[in-house]
Design a protein around this nucleic acid. Structure first.
Lengths: 220, 220
DNA sequence: AAAATATGAGTGGCCAGACCACTTTCAAAT
DNA sequence: ATTTGAAAGTGGTCTGGCCACTCATATTTT
């Protein structure tokens, strides 16, 4: 059963660690030797995971200095692309809706792929919810997008996500557990319609909160 | 002077080799030991590159068998890998799928909006089909996108459409009437599931035609 | 005292060699 | 002719080592 690739586990382990230790973009993460020791893996295996993350643009390495979480918010390309796509889109509602389109489509794909049903990711998320570990909303949804397997959709989603206000950049609250735990269950059982309904419920719950705050679109 | 990461060079080297040797999706690429020897790098360094490509979904590895070019994808993505950090995913398959996501979402919205059911547009299209007037595929689908009311989605769709090859820039053929007329009917009756099924059928019919033509891989 | 220089610890980059687990192949045994 | 099993080949992983680079500190030079 456990023929899963080690380096993929390490990728998620590292991500978990980053969240747990609250490492922020630009911060340094432990050295390769340190991480290898902590995760009980060889350094070369660990490096395979790190190099993958680097190719994805999630981390930066500087020889002699260390490895750093890359600040994707400063990515120039993101700026260029977004101004291109979002030029004259005044409607925040459209951004929200379009992002939702991609998310729900991802859920559809996931529920149709039986290989994705029995994945340790679900357990991981469930634990983090039950354990009251800090879990960022964005991290959960991004995982869905990644699992869907459509990289382009993932990229579009990522852009939209940055323009959807900030609810995604905050941890899940106590109230949301009641929606997310059933959602995890539905995903595991490949119950597509339930999963979509639950996700929509969560999403509109988030949107409601966003409207009240409304201090969005602050930076950029 | 050679600041560039070795494993990034390897990524592009592998891409070049794949192109040179005309390795096609599903084919096996040389073993790690062989590649390491050929490229004059250590095996672990080579593996860092391979693992990155694997995480990107470009290759598959099967223990005991070998490493294979991933099926569903198009190596056009490999093209872009050199400039990867400025990621610009170009998998044709992803583009197609993502465009489909937006189109089907538009159909969903249309079917849910009763105001759109009794519209003279449907009659107009029906007539043009029956009258054998020349009707461009793109015109029809664009109308769907417009009707959905999401301008951002329309905009993204338009971009994707330009990258999806040219089947959209040609008139509908005789064969397609059998799919499009029922589709129009389903839209009028707000029969969402039928409409989606019919549209998918049409879409995959188009894609099939595209595959036969496009023996491209002609580089950019 | 200030500035230039040397040192050493820590880091990522890379490599060679060694096992292991697994799949395929093909020759030997039945 | 079929089954069995040994060998070769492959990816997965680990160890230990060396190099190149950065940075803070100590040392020497001015």
């Amino acid at each position: 059963m456990n023929q899963s690739k080690r380096f993929l586990d390490i990728v998620t382990d590292i991500r978990d660690m980053i969240r747990r230790e609250k490492i922020k973009p630009g911060n340094r993460i432990p050295s390769e030797r340190e991480l290898a020791e902590k995760l009980q893996v060889g350094r070369s295996t660990l490096r395979e995971a790190l190099r993958s993350l680097e190719l994805l643009g999630l981390i930066e390495t500087r020889r002699g200095e260390g490895t750093f979480l890359s600040d994707h918010r400063n990515h120039q390309l993101v700026e260029v692309l977004s101004t291109f796509i979002l030029q004259d889109t005044q409607s925040q509602e459209d951004v929200w809706q379009t992002r939702l389109i991609h998310e729900i489509s991802a859920i559809r794909t996931i529920c149709q792929n039986s290989k994705l049903a029995s994945l340790k990711v679900w357990d991981s998320f469930r634990n983090r919810l039950n354990e009251n570990e800090s879990l960022y909303r964005e991290d959960f949804v991004r995982e869905l997008m990644v699992l869907s397997g459509n990289r382009l959709s993932l990229k579009i989603w990522f852009l939209l996500q940055q323009y959807s206000g900030n609810p995604y950049q905050e941890p899940v609250t106590e109230d949301e557990k009641e929606m997310l735990l059933p959602l995890l269950a539905a995903l595991e059982q490949q119950d597509m319609s339930s999963a979509i309904d639950l996700f929509k419920t969560w999403s509109s719950w988030l949107q409601k909160g966003r409207m009240q705050n409304g201090n969005d679109t602050r930076d950029l």
